[in-house]
Design a protein around this nucleic acid. Structure first.
Length: 346
DNA sequence: CATTCGTGGTT
DNA sequence: TAACCAAGAAT
């Protein structure tokens, strides 16, 4: 029995029944694959269920409002994924006449779909053999099987080694089997080699050096910033502003404020930022509390103040949208996690 | 090719 | 508990 056949036979004995595997079609797999990018299965499941309830197909999705999509995406992270899905749905519906592309050339042109996702859709939905999806799980498995050095860890190398484990009749099942092994068995730490159907081929397992692969790159220093933000009240409403589309947390709403500059107090910072961004003046600044929040590439300490609107137009100089809303109305806007943490201080 | 994109789980 | 990591893509 070939290695690929061993995998298939192992896969058939397993029972990982995720919602996107219950009715396999390009739309379902596409949405699940986008959500699963750099995101754990456990986290994705409730978002996926909710998404399918609201947008069961491409036609429903393409005519949806991006703000609604973002609202459902709240808390998932990497928010440009929602924007990309929306744009891609429009392209599929209009340019491809609502027929999901079944070839690499067209798939790869869609926003948010890269080599991995295109190959995954082709393998699972269309049972195509000629494109091998390489993700973090498969990299880890192949790196351990072949004890690859940092220099050998190239996409092409991964694809070549992975081919040996793909059954020509059932490419989709082969890939899913590898993903399941990577997630459940060949884990980054404490891999469960006893349960692995292909452990006999694994050079790292022979040496007992599994955790050394894949080779870790040196970590980058993560900067830390202090931020001051304000709940600016006018009557019973406060001000929120929409973040620019193509930057961090694009299209999400937040409380106005900004980064502390050298030799500046937090209160001075808040006044300056609000003057710069919105051209308004405030009074009665009072500290509420602070939260810490970590992104992939920076750490923030955000101090929350309340204050009273004094004068000015509240016209955003940076040309992003602003709104005065009541506390009740805030639950119909999409905010990033950090802003939700700030609201919890109240 | 290195950075920039979030958030929550895990050790 | 700080560090690492998760079904990557875009720039």
């Amino acid at each position: 029995m070939s290695e690929a056949q061993k995998l298939i036979s192992w896969y058939n004995q397993q029972s990982y029944d995720f919602p996107w595997r219950q009715n396999i079609n390009p739309y379902n797999i596409w949405i699940s694959e986008i959500m699963l990018q750099q995101t754990q299965v456990k986290t994705v499941i409730p978002y996926y269920m909710n998404w399918m309830k609201h947008y069961p197909d491409i036609e429903t999705l393409q005519k949806a409002d991006i703000n609604e999509l973002l609202y459902l995406w709240q808390g998932l992270g990497y928010y440009s994924r929602a924007k990309n899905i929306h744009n891609a749905a429009n392209i599929i519906f209009k340019k491809f006449n609502n027929k999901f592309p079944d070839n690499y050339k067209e798939l790869i042109t869609l926003p948010g779909i890269g080599d991995y996702t295109a190959s995954m859709i082709l393998s699972i939905c269309f049972n195509k053999y000629d494109h091998v999806p390489i993700d973090g799980n498969i990299k880890r498995i192949m790196s351990r099987l072949n004890i690859l050095s940092l220099k050998q860890e190239t996409l092409q190398n991964y694809k070549i080694s992975t081919r040996n484990y793909i059954d020509k009749e059932k490419p989709g099942d082969s890939i899913q089997a590898l993903m399941d092994i990577g997630r459940e068995i060949c884990t980054p730490r404490l891999p469960k080699c006893d349960c692995c159907p292909i452990y006999k081929n694994c050079k790292a397992q022979m040496q007992g050096t599994m955790e050394n692969y894949p080779v870790r790159k040196k970590k980058k220093h993560i900067p830390h910033y202090d931020i001051a933000v304000g709940l600016i009240w006018k009557e019973n409403k406060f001000l929120i502003s929409k973040r620019p589309q193509d930057k961090l947390l694009g299209n999400l709403w937040e409380l106005p404020g900004g980064k502390l500059e050298p030799r500046e107090s937090m209160q001075e910072c808040l006044k300056r930022e609000i003057k710069e961004e919105l051209d308004i003046k405030i009074k009665k600044i009072k500290k509420i509390g602070l939260i810490k929040h970590q992104y992939s590439h920076m750490k923030l300490t955000i101090t929350l103040f309340t204050c009273i609107y004094c004068s000015g137009t509240a016209k955003p100089l940076a040309s992003q949208e602003v709104k005065w809303i009541t506390m009740k109305e805030k639950k119909s806007f999409a905010f990033p996690r950090a802003t939700h943490k700030l609201f919890e201080l109240l």
